[in-house]
Design a binder for these strands. Structure first.
Lengths: 156, 156
DNA sequence: GTCGGTGCAAACGCTTTGCAACCTA
DNA sequence: TAGGTTGCAAAGCGTTTGCACCGAC
């Protein structure tokens, strides 16, 4: 995938700028993040998948790499209420226009890449004097597929 | 505080309805939650405070009580990105109109009790077919006090 | 040769659980 | 007195850290 290679070299550059190396382990981690984009995988889940490409890698290295990528703002760490950290590759074009829909029936996590909060953030500044730099917005509810199923069951 | 007593008996009723008892430990926990409302304390912090009223209480009981109150929707469990659960007494009149402002300078957590998301939730239903039941919204940024300080420093 | 990066195992902090004793409705 | 509730200690789980070894520049 050319697209993927571009991403990797771009990330390699960022690492270099920070005086750090693009090791095979880090490359494999980024590859896996790219491959499972928007899946919101935990460190342990990523570890299992990364091992397919880089079997010798250790869990600690995965954590360290994810921390590093988070600091460089290449990935975003999200914590839902289960307390487990999940990791998301950040799109280059995306500031913080990124929300989650968490279905309480099937557990699926959907992403919305659209800024729903522009006006709301202005309001927060106006009313509370709070300057918003970033946000975390997760909606809990029922996704389209599950709603349909529920309606179906109610009738049947 | 009459207000507080009302709350306690009301919560006692809810427990009763669920076939559970209002023990001294639970009473002390609710009292402390009332006393430090909107402080977003962790279980450990609450434990320390509850012990002032009920010195024999164990940490496990605090966790169990908080779990119980969360299930009964009397308190709300919030997890910011540090991964530690914090607990918030739910106001009777409040559905989910409750957001957080997290200052990245001083670490303070402010609450907003105002529904900023009514229109946004309609949009989510319209565009994504997702029926919103609840949400978590946290703004990361700089609070009014810290903004003022920063402006002052820039000038001085 | 230096210095960052790695794997392993041990440690860590928050949370949950097993169990015997307790106590309240 | 029956069943929920408790305190304690141990275990659980995700995450971090110490350390010796490795490998690229």
């Amino acid at each position: 995938m050319v697209f993927q290679e571009e991403h990797i070299t771009e990330i390699g550059k960022k690492l270099h700028q920070a005086g750090m190396k693009l090791t095979p382990q880090r490359r494999a981690t980024v590859n896996t993040l790219l491959k499972y984009q928007t899946k919101h995988l935990s460190a342990e889940e990523l570890f299992t998948l990364i091992k397919l490409e880089e079997p010798e890698i250790g869990l600690a290295t995965v954590y360290r790499t994810l921390d590093l990528l988070t600091e460089l703002q290449i990935v975003e760490r999200v914590t839902f209420d289960d307390g487990v950290a999940r990791y998301d590759l950040r799109r280059a074009d995306q500031q913080h226009f990124h929300h989650h829909l968490l279905c309480s029936v099937c557990g699926k996590v959907e992403e919305i890449h659209e800024d729903l909060l522009g006006e709301v953030e202005n309001e927060v500044l106006r009313k509370y004097g709070f300057t918003v730099q970033d946000h975390r917005l997760t909606f809990h509810g029922v996704c389209e597929a599950c709603s349909r199923k529920e309606r179906y069951q109610d009738q049947g």
